[in-house]
Design a protein around this nucleic acid. Structure first.
Lengths: 343, 343
DNA sequence: AATAGTTTTGCAAATGTTTTCATAAATGGG
DNA sequence: CCCATTTATGAAAACATTTGCAAAACTATT
C-alpha cells in the first residue's frame, strides 16, 4: 500500500525511489529526450508509486512561466460574459494555460486590487474587460513585462491591444435601422453606465445618432434600468401607460429588450405591430423568443477565441507584438421591429 | 525616473533601497507589528518606488497557502453554472482566495487532467461539480491533504462533502405537482444524461415517480434534447404535431422548458389552457416569461455561497471536518401549469 | 584495447521568499 | 547612569525546483 496522506512527495523522494539524482527527475519532466529510456521507465514508475505531483510554484521561481492567465470581468452573472470567458478559457487551455478568474462588479477600485493579486500569482498574461480602467490599473500594467489585452470592446486607439466589437458602431447600426423603418418617436432604455464603458459607448452613440437625425428623445423616454428582465418589464409597463407612446424602444442589451417585450405584451400591445423593440447583443434565446428579437450581434465566442489566441501567442512568443482585432458586430433583423406604415 | 521594465524587483532590491535586510521586508508584509513604525515607512516608500510585487510562488514553496481554489465545472455556457461560480468566487474572495477555473465539457477524462494541473498549481482546495466523477479523480483527491467538495448536487452518502440540491427530490416534486393537478398524459424532455449526473438523477426520479403512480410514458413522448432553446422549440413542435398530444410536458431544466413554451405557442396552442409545461432550475427570466414558468428552484446563489464558506473555512481551519449541506429545492408554482378540468 | 566522440548523469549554485535564532538597539527601574 | 528587559533587526537555513558544468558511462573507430 502506498502511503497516502503523510507528506507530499517531492522530487527527492522520487529520485531516491528511482535510484537517480533529483536533476535527472527534473530532466525527465522538462527534457525527456535527454534521459535514457530505461531510466525514464524507472522514474515513471517511481512517480506513479509516490503519487508525485510537480510543484509549479517551485518552477515559477526560476522565471519559468506559471501557466496561468488572469481574467478580470465585471461579473459572470450576465450570460454574455460567461460565454466569452468560456470560449477564452477553452482557447488558452489548448496552449496549456489555466485561468485565474475574478470579477469586480463594476468597481474600478476593486479591479486594481484584483490585478495586483493576480500579479502576485505571477500570471503570464492579463485580460481585462472593456477599455475604461482606472489610471492606476494602466500604470500597474505598464510596469509589467507580461502582455495584457482588453477584451470585449474594440477601439484602435485603445491603451492596450483591444479585441472585441465597436459598441458605438453597434449603437449607430441599430439607430440607422430604426430610422430607415421610419421611426421618429423613440424611447431608450439603458443600464446604468457608471463603470460600464460598453453600455456608455452604446448609449452615447445612440443618442448622438438620433440627435444628428433630428430625433429628440424626451426625458421620460430616457430610461435607466438595471440589468434584469423584471426591472425592464416593469419600467416598460410604466413607460407604456403614459398618454403618448413611442413607436419604438431601443434597449441597451438583449436582456432589457426581453423584459421590454414582456412588458409590452403585458401592457396589451402587440410587438411589432403596436411597438417595435430592439436589443443589442444577440444573446442566447433572442432568436427563439416570440417575436424573435431584432438586435446587433456581438460575437462573444469569436471575441473570446481571438483574445485567447492572441494572448497565448504573445506569451509564448514574447517578442511579437500583440495586435488588437475588431470583431465586427452585425445587424440581425428579426421580427420585433417593423417599418412604420406611411399614415 | 523609476526604472520601469528591466527586472522585476525582489525583496532584496527593496531591502537595499530601504536600507534594511530582506528579513525585515518580509516581516513588513507578514508581521507588520514586529517592525518599527519608521522602518515600516521607509520600506513602504521603497516598495512603491521599486514597484515591488510579492511573489506568491516563492511563498508557496514554504508550504504557505497559495491562496487559490480550483473550480471545475462542466461549462460556463449554461447561465446557471456561471451563477454558482460567480457566487462561489465572490464568497471565497472575501477570505482572500482567487479561483482557478476550468471547464471540461462533460468529459470525465478531461476532468482528471484538469484536476492534476490544478494540483500542480498547489491550489488550497478543490470544487467539483456534481457527484459523479471518474474513479481516478476520486483516488487522486484521496491522496491529497487539501479539502475538496462537490458542489451543485447533494447526497448524504457522497464520497466527498456535497453542497447542493437533491435532484431526485426536485424531480419527484415536479411529478407530484403535476399528478396532483390531474395530469396523466405526460411527455418528458431531458438533456442527454451521459456524464451529467444532475440530469440523470432528475430523469430517473421523474420516470420512477411516474411509473409508481401508474403513469406510462410512451417512447415517442420521451425526448432527449440538447440544452438549447431552439432544439427544444423544434422538438416540441414535432411532438405536438402528432395525433395524440400529452396534457403536460416535464422538462429537465428551464432552458428546455422555455423552448417548449415557444414551441407550444408556435404550434398554435395556448399554455396552460391547452398544455402545461414545467421546468427545473428557476433560471433568470423564468419568472418573467409569458406565461411565467412553473418550476423547481435550485438555489444557485445559496449553493455557491455555502460551498465557498465551507471550503474557505476547511482551508483556513484545516482540522475541522467539512460537512455537506442540503440546499433545499423548492417548488415554484407559476402559470405555465394548470389543473386539468374534470371532463 | 586504446582513443575519440557521444550520450547520460550528478553536483552544486541559483531562484525569491519565510522563519528560527541570535544579536543589537531601545526602554525602564533603580 | 547602569543593568535587566523588551523590542527591533539581521544572518543563515530551508523550501522544491532548474540548469550549467563537469564527470562518468557508453559507442564507435581504429
Amino acid at each position: 500500500m502506498t502511503d497516502s496522506k503523510i507528506k507530499r512527495a517531492d522530487i527527492f523522494t522520487v529520485a531516491k525511489a528511482a535510484g537517480v539524482s533529483p536533476s535527472t527527475v527534473s530532466r525527465y519532466f522538462n527534457h525527456p529526450d535527454l534521459v535514457k529510456l530505461v531510466t525514464r521507465r524507472r522514474i515513471e514508475t517511481a512517480v506513479r508509486k509516490q503519487g508525485y505531483i510537480r510543484n509549479r510554484a517551485a518552477q515559477t521561481i526560476h522565471g519559468i512561466r506559471s501557466g496561468t492567465i488572469g481574467v478580470i470581468v465585471p461579473t459572470l452573472d450576465h450570460a454574455i460574459f460567461a460565454e466569452v470567458v468560456q470560449s477564452f478559457s477553452d482557447t488558452v487551455a489548448e496552449h496549456g494555460f489555466t485561468i485565474l478568474l475574478a470579477s469586480h462588479g463594476y468597481d474600478q477600485q476593486r479591479e486594481y486590487s484584483i490585478l495586483r493579486k493576480m500579479l502576485e500569482h505571477r500570471v503570464d498574461g492579463i485580460v481585462l474587460t472593456g477599455l475604461d480602467h482606472d489610471e492606476a490599473v494602466y500604470q500597474l500594467l505598464d510596469r509589467q513585462t507580461n502582455p495584457a489585452i482588453l477584451m470585449w470592446n474594440y477601439a484602435d486607439n485603445s491603451r492596450y491591444p483591444s479585441i472585441g466589437s465597436d459598441n458605438e458602431l453597434a449603437g449607430s447600426m441599430i439607430v440607422e435601422h430604426l430610422l430607415s423603418q421610419g421611426h421618429r418617436e423613440i424611447a431608450c432604455m439603458f443600464p446604468p453606465i457608471r463603470g460600464n464603458d460598453r453600455a456608455e459607448a452604446r448609449f452615447k452613440s445612440v443618442m448622438r445618432n438620433l440627435t444628428d437625425a433630428g430625433v429628440y428623445v424626451p426625458d421620460p423616454w430616457q430610461l435607466t434600468t438595471v440589468y434584469s428582465i423584471s426591472a425592464s418589464k416593469s419600467d416598460t409597463l410604466e413607460l407604456l401607460s403614459a398618454d403618448t407612446r413611442p413607436t419604438a424602444i431601443i434597449c441597451g442589451n438583449d436582456i432589457l429588450a426581453t423584459g421590454a417585450l414582456y412588458g409590452a405584451t403585458a401592457a396589451g400591445l402587440h410587438v411589432p405591430d403596436d411597438i417595435s423593440i430592439t436589443g443589442i447583443g444577440d444573446f442566447k434565446g433572442s432568436e427563439e423568443i416570440e417575436p424573435a428579437l431584432t438586435t446587433v450581434r456581438i460575437p462573444a465566442k469569436q471575441i473570446g477565441n481571438r483574445a485567447g489566441t492572441a494572448l497565448s501567442s504573445a506569451i509564448i512568443n514574447s517578442d511579437t507584438a500583440t495586435n488588437g482585432f475588431h470583431c465586427k458586430a452585425e445587424l440581425i433583423v428579426r421580427r420585433s421591429c417593423k417599418a412604420l406604415s406611411q399614415a
